[in-house]
Nucleic acid binder design. Sequence first.
DNA 1: CGCGATTTTGATGTACATCAAATGGGGTGG
DNA 2: CCACCCCATTTGATGTACATCAAAATCGCG
Lengths: 226, 226
Amino acid sequence: MPRALKLSSAQQAMLGGALIASSLDRHEQDALLSCAVAVRYEPQDVLFREHDKARYFYCVLNGYVRLYRGSQDREADISICEPGDSFGECLVLAGEGYNYSAQAMEHAILARFDIAQVKALLDQRPRIGGAIARSLSQHLLSTMECLARDRMQTSPQRVAHYLLAHCTNEGTRASLRLPFQKSLLARKLGLAPEALSRAFSTLRTSGVSVCGRAIAIEDINVLRQV
Amino acid sequence: MPRALKLSSAQQAMLGGALIASSLDRHEQDALLSCAVAVRYEPQDVLFREHDKARYFYCVLNGYVRLYRGSQDREADISICEPGDSFGECLVLAGEGYNYSAQAMEHAILARFDIAQVKALLDQRPRIGGAIARSLSQHLLSTMECLARDRMQTSPQRVAHYLLAHCTNEGTRASLRLPFQKSLLARKLGLAPEALSRAFSTLRTSGVSVCGRAIAIEDINVLRQV
DNA sequence: CGCGATTTTGATGTACATCAAATGGGGTGG
DNA sequence: CCACCCCATTTGATGTACATCAAAATCGCG
């Protein structure tokens, strides 16, 4: 268990802009943030495991966190959380234990919210329930989209979609830098690392060139065809 | 567009017990239900399509509704909604258009909620936001579970899990009756109908016997091994 | 009893996992 | 600054799960 620190004012500002708090007024934000502390994890640290009693939910301030199910024998990633994303907030409303495990990738700094405190806050500040609902809506939509893509698209198509969704384009040309290792991207897309590598090489014929974490796209419209 | 009817008192009672309203007090329930009417669809009717402007969300009273993405060429089911399940409620909080299409299976009766009215209600009755959050939590958890299972388990394992989750057991023996066609179950599990059929025949060696929609399980514990 | 729809069965193809080995790249210590 | 090592990634060979296509079989129902 890492040590808990007070949230710095920069961290508070960042949380105020995160989806989970962005629809709240000043007072409500303060009330919600009063349930939170900052915690820091080392790469590979496990925050909690499936079925653990749930005391906290989190919002990522820095780094990345993977949510996954299964034991070391056979694991499946459910989601990769980036700065601004929250996870476990559904436990404020329902459930006793976590439904998945969480592991920090790289060094990660998180805001940790005490579930019992937030629960107690719901009566005084009922609009916080709405804020949580907004965050859950977003999660639900992206999880459904992920499920539909897994079922409908091949690996090159899923990779192409990821690239198009994350690239910054200058005209018809575009580029991006992966924010994390390829093996993590592979798991996010539900692929083995080898399959991601092969998907990239398939996409070479569609004008995608990969150089380490830097990726260049010759023509966005060609990639959209895939 | 089907004609809208007032909710009968039996339907109102059913909705009061559904997840989306069950945490609300009398007045809040009445307020929420005042945004709803009953609508009836014929088998195969499409309620709405992906990207349509979202005016309503729904709660199933009778029958089944499938939520899916993609065009007729290539479709993937996201969820099969049963009586008591709601869908589209995330649009009260975020988004303009539907993110998936919805189609009635068999004859279906639904409660149809006007999104704009419910949105307006959120300020007066902020705890309704919490009620929606509870419903969304449940959806999110089940969608995540579905995603994880798709990625981790083979078809016989997913079928076995469905059976164990839905059977009524008498001692070590158990049985169930499928509430809908096998082809629908197949889509719910992300399989082609043929694959479901083959999964059942694989499970015969684990003591599962299928006779039309009636299914008998010789020994629950054997099936859990799968 | 017979018809259409659903399900099963068989044969084949494809996407992706898995295992094993080669390649490459970034950081450390010399 | 360079050599080396470790780990991430790529590449190749093979296996498996499931989709797809094409019948045959069965079910439900008039």
